[in-house]
Design a protein around this nucleic acid. Sequence first.
DNA 1: AGGAGTTTTTGACAAAGTCCAAATCTCGGC
DNA 2: GCCGAGATTTGGACTTTGTCAAAAACTCCT
Lengths: 139, 139
Amino acid sequence: MRDPEDTLRQHDLPVTAQRVSVLRAVSHHPHATADMLAEEVRAELGSISRQSVYNVLNVLTDKGIIRRIQPAESAALYEDRIGDNHHHLVCRTCGKTEDVCCAVGEAPCLTAQSHHGFKIDEAEVIYWGTCPACQKKKR
Amino acid sequence: MRDPEDTLRQHDLPVTAQRVSVLRAVSHHPHATADMLAEEVRAELGSISRQSVYNVLNVLTDKGIIRRIQPAESAALYEDRIGDNHHHLVCRTCGKTEDVCCAVGEAPCLTAQSHHGFKIDEAEVIYWGTCPACQKKKR
DNA sequence: AGGAGTTTTTGACAAAGTCCAAATCTCGGC
DNA sequence: GCCGAGATTTGGACTTTGTCAAAAACTCCT
């Protein structure tokens, strides 16, 4: 991602230390929870309130600067990569999350026959399975 | 779904009033939250503890008798229809959830190229959008 | 530098679940 | 039909994730 400050300005968001730092944290740690990001920001800024982390993440998500994914049984995760229609692979055992390129064609997933009169704007795909490490452990 | 009691026995689960009732509730109210199901069960049995509802739902989910879906920003929902690989349509505004037949082929979604060494056992697809009612309200 | 309008902070609060120990119930055998 | 081992249900406290609201602090524009 480009410079955090530029990104904020481009979206008409006042630049604050907290926002810059959260944005950087998301960039460096894809698939992190709000809590993990808060830790990260604290390491950089010294401190940040829990509320601010949520504020910032919500604003950024609303503006489409970052993406929120929320697998079952886990807190929301945030990531940088947007617009490239990739999906996620989540380990049922340890929760580890990986990116996956879209399995079928390019924007295949939005092709749900526009059912029930809904106006669909996004398709979220989560592949559930077991990661290599956990496969080993189980045996 | 077949008779709740039979279903339980087939999975080697002791038959209890709570389980039978929860199972029936899930059957009658697809996409209900644990709380809604608890209400439903109370109407039938008189009472059930919150913990038991969760216990039962967890056991049933583990055994693959029911399926849990957990859209972002909402409590987990439970449903009866399993094995037919259908997906869900969720309204961003009101949270309304509908079933959708699988958009592509039959079990298309599991076709993610087995990436990262994960052993994939399920693909969950959630289509995000706006339901007809909310589209109307916004205008 | 000054001021209007946003953000951040702080602390209380809410929802959804889990943990644990005690009481109760189910199922299989006698 | 009754008994007992083992599983299930209860109730209550607790955790996690996140939101609400008001006051203090900050950003950006002039």
